[in-house]
């Protein structure tokens, strides 16, 4: 039995507990980390799908349709909508709560909006962790929406097995000018707003592009035509997602990608911990205060100084710095 009552409630399907624990993991609190550890055996089972693409192409609308579709199949769905925080104030307007005509209090849907909180890449560890909480809560499918048109959303790869890039027809000739980043991450292209003119051309064009693009795996990106407005193509899109999931389970190149993703998460977790420790040491440790002083007075160079700091953290011996007798740099 997990000791944290919130975790126990989460595993029993308590929505308030899920909401509170997301807050904890999002802020990276010790309670959050402990909770993630104890729920870990309950994770890894959901279908995790990323929806990304430029602003206004209809990601949220499409997700709303998809959720309705999946609820009809009896599947439980979690949605995480990630929006950028202002780098200046840390604030954000999160306007992405999907609109659905489900009965209020429908237990099979949970929507959470999330700000990037200054983390680069548009997706944070908080998103990975929130996916896991939703899995432990009992969601069959977790959908992650991220805004973007290029490099920054490549990180949707870090959390989702299947990545849907949403585009619209009248992007037409501009499709070439879309940042390569979007093409590289797409397992599926959804050409939304196919009620507007130009959809067949866009689909044909994307199919050609998908054919010549260098693939990460032996998967060739699917192109699906759909309209959130008219609710068409939703089942096709889901079929395509399922097909890719099946592929990812069996294909060895997909498994390699999973190993890469895992290594990346481990690296990021360690980096984060190191960062915290360095910050703490530099601000609170007396010896380190002295070191800062010595470096700023030019008696130790920063390169050797950093070795000393690293030595303190790892407990491994470091190269001793050459002590200089010269006058401080501030003499310049």
């Amino acid at each position: 039995m997990p000791p944290d009552p919130l975790v126990r409630r989460l595993l029993k399907g308590d929505r308030v507990a899920l909401a509170k624990l997301i807050t904890e993991v999002e802020s990276g609190s010790p309670q959050g980390t402990e909770a993630l550890r104890s729920i870990y055996p309950h994770t890894g089972k959901a279908t995790v799908v990323g929806f990304t693409g430029p602003l206004g192409v209809g990601k949220s609308s499409l997700i709303s349709r998809m959720v309705g579709h999946l609820r009809k199949k009896g599947l439980k769905v979690g949605v995480i909508a990630v929006d950028p925080s202002s780098p200046f104030t840390g604030g954000a307007v999160l306007g992405d709560r999907i609109r659905l005509n489900l009965p209020p209090g429908d237990k099979g849907l949970f929507v959470r909006s999330m700000a990037t909180r200054g983390q680069s890449g548009g997706l944070s560890q908080g998103t990975r962790d929130t996916v896991r909480l939703m899995e432990a809560f009992g969601m069959d499918v977790v959908i992650v929406e991220t805004v973007g048109s290029g490099q920054s959303d490549v990180n949707v790869r870090d959390v989702a097995t299947t990545r849907v890039v949403v585009l619209v027809p009248h992007l037409g000739d501009d499709i070439q000018s879309l940042k390569a980043g979007l093409f590289e991450i797409a397992d599926i292209f959804a050409v939304n707003k196919s009620d507007l003119p130009g959809a067949p051309e866009a689909v044909r064009h994307l199919r050609e592009m998908a054919g010549i693009l260098m693939a990460r795996t032996s998967w060739r990106a699917d192109v699906v035509e759909c309209s959130a407005l008219n609710a068409t193509g939703i089942e096709d899109l889901w079929k395509s997602i399922e097909r890719h999931e099946e592929f990812a389970r069996k294909d060895s190149s997909a498994r390699e990608e999973l190993a890469e993703r895992t290594a990346k998460e481990l690296r990021e977790l360690v980096q984060h911990k190191m960062d915290e420790r360095v910050r703490l040491l530099l601000s609170e440790d007396e010896g380190m205060q002295k070191l800062i002083q010595e470096v700023s007075e030019g008696r130790i160079d920063p390169y050797s100084g950093s070795e000393l700091l690293l030595g303190r953290i790892t407990g491994l011996p470091s190269k001793s710095p050459p002590k200089r007798k010269t006058t401080p740099r501030s003499a310049r």
Binding site: S85, G91, A92
Partner: peptide, 11 residues
């Protein structure tokens, strides 16, 4: 409220 550093979920 956003400019004051809050996260606003706009419904």
């Amino acid at each position: 409220l956003r400019d004051a550093g809050m996260e606003v979920i706009y419904l």
